[in-house]
């Protein structure tokens, strides 16, 4: 087996205001693996992703991608934020091609067109971001992250702002995209079902300070049916894990029931 795609070793993060966001988090992701990170608000999910993306610095421990320590944004790491964060002054094609300026124009156009067709937005290249629906805008954001062919794709609650139908649609779509080039995916979510639909492994974080409470392997084979009995069994098992890991912190914010 090849080397780990992502290695997180004893990662800790303390913000300047003294908040300990992460403490002694260790995790290894194999190439092509899909890992979901779940946990309530304030448990350091997003911080973990930002450190991996090179947008925030680790206070202690270390993080490496493909064997190289992360010291800033890494060319092999793509990220999709909770909001699409498209640049409103660029049309869809230029937004997707934003990270490709070093390529010759013809090649860039070809790559952008190919990626737009992969996310199901053929013919949308000349549209402005303001003309897109929320789901379409997030597809463009995914295309922008995928067009550079990253080996690791980080997703920070990418579908949380979308309605339930669009969300399920984009989850399936993300799996299709993953199946084509098999990047390593690390997905932060507060949605248990989303984690179970997508991930090979679910990491449960607990807050104050953010640390790993449990690891849960998802045994259901893909494609996963959200209403099948096995899926239901898996969901109960994960909820039980969550319950156990959170049981010893009375008085703290429980795992948000609304997200389940």
């Amino acid at each position: 087996m090849s080397a780990a795609a992502v290695t997180i070793a004893a990662l800790g993060k303390t913000y300047p205001n003294g908040t300990r966001a992460l403490d002694a988090v260790s995790l290894t992701l194999a190439p092509g693996e899909i890992v979901a990170v779940v946990g309530g608000s304030g448990c350091g999910k997003s911080t973990l992703l930002r450190v991996l993306a090179g947008l925030d610095r680790a206070s202690d421990g270390r993080v490496s991608v493909g064997g190289t320590p992360v010291e800033g944004p890494h060319p092999a790491v793509g990220i999709v934020f909770q909001e699409p964060r498209l640049l409103p002054w660029l049309n869809v094609a230029d937004n997707v091609g934003f990270g490709l300026v070093t390529l010759p124009p013809a090649e860039r156009r070809a790559r952008v067109a190919e990626t737009l067709s992969r996310v199901g937005l053929v013919g949308y290249g000349r549209r402005w971001p303001r003309e897109l629906s929320g789901g379409q805008a997030q597809r463009v954001a995914i295309a922008r992250a995928l067009v550079t062919r990253p080996s690791v794709l980080l997703l920070d609650e990418p579908f949380s702002a979308l309605d339930a139908f669009t969300r399920a649609d984009l989850q399936d779509h993300l799996l299709d995209l993953w199946a084509e080039s098999r990047p390593t995916l690390l997905l932060v979510t507060h949605d248990i079902e989303e984690a179970l639909v997508l991930a090979d492994r679910v990491v449960v974080l607990k807050p104050r300070p953010g640390r790993i409470a449990a690891l849960h392997d998802v045994a259901v084979p893909r494609p996963r049916d959200r209403v099948s009995p096995e899926f239901e069994v898996e969901k109960r098992a994960l909820l039980a894990t969550l319950g156990r890991s959170l049981a010893r912190t009375p008085g703290e914010e429980a795992f948000p029931a609304a997200a389940i």
Binding site: A53, L55, G72, P73, P75, I79, F81, E83, R85, L87, F98, G99
Partner: peptide
């Protein structure tokens, strides 16, 4: 800040960040 972060993710240099973002 969120838009500026997009520039950082794509590793834009200072002048490129000014010009493109």
């Amino acid at each position: 800040r969120k838009i500026v972060e997009v520039g950082r993710v794509f590793r834009l240099s200072g002048p490129a960040l000014v010009r493109r973002i």
